[in-house]
């Protein structure tokens, strides 16, 4: 078994009185891609956003149980959410670059961290763009507006922006769902590449995508974790009938 990066134990999540996650327990391995699949409303995105506490901004939420990143409870007392999010980066479903230049988008996370040194910033920006496989396409126009990029490029820019603050974990919430097949393929190749250095958790609606990019797959339904196993096992030989029904497209 691989080294465990994120440990989840009996995690419950409530919106007001509405319980949307029920006793989730799983171990997410380090430097692997873990896919979260399941029908709409199954709680997979809520779960993903619980890992870096992005749900905190929604009023009236409550959690129970534990999520440990590197053995530290992210909901424990004395946890600094700001520094947690610097270690656990996130890429969203819809690309959301700031209305700034390409350079400033990538540099943003470093600047709010207090980095002022122009040379270090330059270096970090081009390294992050390179890791996100975008550098060659934009290196001559770093000062152009990020909004002038294509959808796929914008999403890779958002990945570069997340990588710039040097997280260990990257959470991806359907990062390719709004992209065309070619842009999607680029993102998938990128995810595959990135797992050498990062622990990746990816939510996807696209089962082929889960099968292509992930090492482990968790199947969620109605707020419960139905099955969690190696991706190959989940897709070839699932042990729960519900998983098989979903994967073969009998519902969803």
């Amino acid at each position: 078994m691989d080294e465990v990066k994120i440990t989840v134990r009996d995690f419950d999540f409530y919106y007001g009185t509405n319980k949307v996650l029920h006793a989730i327990s799983l171990d997410i391995p380090k430097n692997r891609v873990t896919a979260l699949i399941g029908p709409s409303g199954c709680g997979k995105s809520t779960f993903l956003r619980s890992i870096n506490r992005m749900n905190d901004i929604i009023p009236g939420i409550r959690v129970d149980g534990k999520i440990l990143v590197d053995d530290v409870d992210v909901y424990g007392s004395g946890i600094d959410v700001v520094s947690l999010r610097r270690r656990v980066g996130m890429v969203f479903q819809k690309s959301n670059p700031f209305p700034k230049s390409i350079y400033e988008n990538v540099a943003y996370g470093l600047r709010i961290n207090g980095l002022r040194d122009k040379r270090k910033l330059d270096e970090a920006v081009s390294r992050s763009l390179d890791r996100a496989a975008l550098l060659d396409e934009v290196k001559d126009r770093l000062n152009a507006s990020a909004l002038a990029l294509s959808g796929g490029q914008q999403q890779r820019l958002c990945i570069a922006r997340a990588l710039a603050v040097d997280p260990d974990v990257l959470l991806m919430d359907e990062p390719a769902s709004a992209l065309d097949p070619i842009a999607t393929q680029k993102i998938e190749e990128l995810v595959f590449d990135l797992k050498k250095n990062y622990t990746i958790v990816i939510v996807t609606h696209n089962m082929q995508q889960a099968a292509r990019v992930s090492d482990r797959t968790a199947f969620f339904m109605l707020g419960k974790l139905v099955e969690y196993d190696d991706t190959r096992t989940i897709f070839m030989n699932p042990s729960v009938k519900l998983t098989e029904d979903y994967i073969t497209g009998r519902f969803g």
Binding site: M54, S83, N96, I112, A162, V165
Partner: peptide
């Protein structure tokens, strides 16, 4: 202003 703008900043460790 889209919520995703604030989320993008928060996810990068913004206060």
């Amino acid at each position: 202003v889209p919520m995703t703008q604030r989320e993008a900043a928060l996810a990068l460790g913004a206060t």
